Amino acid sequence: MVSRTELLVSESAMTVFSVHHKTTYRYKRPIRPGLHQLLFRPRDSFDQRLLDCHLKVVPEPAEVRWIHDVFGNCLTLVDFGLKCELLEFETFIRLEHTPENAPDFRIEDYARSHPFSYSEDESPDLAAYIRRHHPQDIGVEEWLEKFLRKDTGRPTGQLLMTLNEAIAEGFSYKRRISSGTQLPGETLRNQQGTCRDFALLMMEAARALGFAARFVTGYVYVPTRDGPIRLGGGSTHAWCQIYVPGSGWVEFDPTNGIVGNRDLIRIGVARTPGQAIPLSGSYWGDAEDELGMEVEVNVKTDGDSTAWAAVAG
């Protein structure tokens, strides 16, 4: 007898994705690189299974080691012993990816209508994700009032999808070379931002409504040859997860209006955007020694000949 679970898996179209990511730093004169941290290796899960993973670093590192951070993400720590004028990190991952049947996610009876309270068993572990991280941004509440009526119950799934769509349809995506994430209030004032900005805005809006939310960093597949254009391609991508009783952590990509994991390759999760930076590090030298950074990201499916996309900084 074939179980219902087996039927659901067989009906889902599994895809094999490969991601080639190269980051290059150039300097006027030799500098000494300090410790660098990479977040590029995805964790195996029921919806994605890692098949292959490689890292190439120039110059040759003095030490490479792997650890798990407080969220269970796999971090790569790279240290150097030589000076250099060029610093390059090249990563490759290949994985099986199974899209979920979203937005048809299940919700426990007690949480079908908002507002609701998480169960006593889950509340202590979700508390840090429910707490507002930018409570001074009162603009978030004002924005929510535009399409949510106070003291009125609403289906939980519909509410979350409304938030996701409101950002996807009401804000303009604009790539920003500088690092960091805009405060939610700044994104609301500008009516534009990057994928990281939109993810943080949705997280803070969801937290203002009592939901647990966390930040996700990864990649988005851009199926330009056979489907709608996805924003955020050509570099790393960011979105968020909301904890829904009965379905667990559900993916919401407010940049593209995606609900569920379709076309999204999850690398790491964190409580704040600053805890999920794909590559960070330092060097000994003068600030004016830095000539710039180049990022090349290629996300493709098996048999796809998608070209490299370059971002110069």
Rank of each mutant, 00 (worst) to 15 (best):
S280A: 13
F252C: 10
V259G: 08
G268I: 01
G218E: 02
V269R: 06
N256A: 02
R230P: 06
P278L: 10
P228Y: 03
S235F: 13
P254T: 08
I277D: 06
R266K: 15
A276T: 09
T255V: 00
R271A: 15
S235D: 14
R262F: 12
G248A: 06
P278N: 08
I277T: 15
I265H: 02
D263H: 13
S280H: 08
V220P: 04
G281Q: 04
Y219M: 09
R225D: 14
G274A: 14
P254G: 06
G233I: 11
L231V: 03
V222M: 11
G227T: 02
D226F: 14
P273R: 03
G227Y: 03
G274D: 13
I229W: 11
P278K: 04
P278Y: 05
T236C: 12
Y243E: 00
P273V: 01
R225K: 14
T224H: 13
R230A: 14
T255N: 01
G227N: 12
V222L: 13
I242L: 12
R262E: 15
G234C: 09
L231D: 03
W249E: 06
G274K: 12
I277V: 15
G233H: 10
Y243T: 03
S235L: 12
E251L: 06
G227P: 02
D263E: 13
T272H: 13
G260S: 09
Q275R: 11
V244E: 05
L279T: 05
F252H: 08
I277F: 03
T255C: 02
W249R: 04
Y243W: 09
R262D: 15
Q275D: 15
G260Y: 07
S247M: 04
I242Q: 07
C240R: 00
I265E: 01
R262G: 02
G274Q: 14
R230V: 09
G257Y: 10
I229P: 00
I277L: 15
V244G: 06
G246D: 03
A238E: 02
A270W: 04
G268S: 15
R266H: 14
R271H: 07
W249I: 07
A238T: 04
P273F: 03
I229S: 09
E251R: 05
S280F: 00
G257E: 05
Y243Q: 00
L264P: 09
A276E: 14
V250Y: 03
D226G: 07
H237I: 08
L279Q: 03
G227W: 04
G281L: 05
A270H: 00
T224W: 13
P228C: 00
W239I: 12
G218W: 00
N261T: 10
G248Y: 02
R271T: 05
Q275H: 12
I258G: 01
V259Q: 03
C240Q: 05
R225W: 11
I258M: 12
D253L: 04
G281Y: 07
V220H: 02
A270Y: 07
T224V: 15
P273M: 07
W239D: 03
D253V: 01
P254K: 07
